[in-house]
């Protein structure tokens, strides 16, 4: 059975190893709003922050380009860092980039690699917890949007979405709607109706 739980709610009378939960006095408690699935032993946060894992793609905005390192604002608790000697792309303040999380250093800084500058367009910030829904299973949702709007779109796991060209207004509307209605069943159908102009 799935249930909606809030911070502090006891979800199991025994200790479980699950992200977004803690164990106190042998009991497992949720720490954020989420859905706990007892049978599958899974916890899906509905509101939450982005916790980076190596290999993930992010979108960021260059905050400060220095001689040896570039500081990247990735809308997260920590700054992204690009070490210039490992990168052939030269960056300037204000550039929008796509990059990959390489590693997390001890101080919490996120080392990024393989930066690519995205020219023009705009960046939309959505809740990181909604990114998986925006991508869809095997990226089906985002592919549908790109196909129908003819926009170039790049989605960062950190919740930043870059959009350029095509019907970018429609793409924006669709993305924001997915964010707002991610938890309402039948979303894929509604979005495809919307993209077909049937709403």
């Amino acid at each position: 059975m799935r249930r909606l739980v809030l911070p502090g709610d006891i979800i199991a009378e025994k200790p479980l190893r699950l992200d977004h939960t803690i164990v106190e006095e042998g009991k497992t408690c949720s720490t954020v709003i989420g859905i706990f699935d007892e049978e599958k032993n899974s916890f899906i946060p509905l509101e939450g922050l982005w916790y980076p894992t190596p290999g993930e793609k992010i979108i960021g905005i260059v905050e400060e380009a220095k001689l040896n390192t570039d500081l990247i604002d990735i809308n997260a608790p920590y700054k992204g860092l690009i070490i210039s000697k490992f990168s052939e792309t030269s960056l300037a303040g204000g550039d929008i980039i796509e990059a990959t999380v390489k590693e997390l250093d001890k101080t919490g800084t996120i080392i990024l690699s393989r930066p690519r500058v995205l020219f023009g367009g705009k960046v939309l910030v959505i809740k990181p917890s909604k990114v998986p829904r925006l991508l869809g299973k095997q990226d089906t949702m985002i592919r549908q949007i790109i196909e129908k709007t003819k926009s170039s779109i790049s989605v960062g796991m950190n919740g930043l979405v870059w959009i350029k060209g095509g019907d970018s207004d429609m793409a924006t509307k669709a993305i924001l709607r997915i964010q707002d209605e991610s938890h309402v069943p039948g979303l894929t159908e509604r979005i495809s109706q919307m993209l077909e102009g049937k709403e």
Binding site: I61, D73, N75, I96, F119, G120, G121, K122, V123, L124, V125, K164
Partner: peptide
């Protein structure tokens, strides 16, 4: 960060 960040190029085009 604002919800939307526009680039100079995008804004001027529009």
């Amino acid at each position: 960060m604002n919800v939307t960040t526009l680039t100079d190029q995008y804004l001027r085009e529009r």
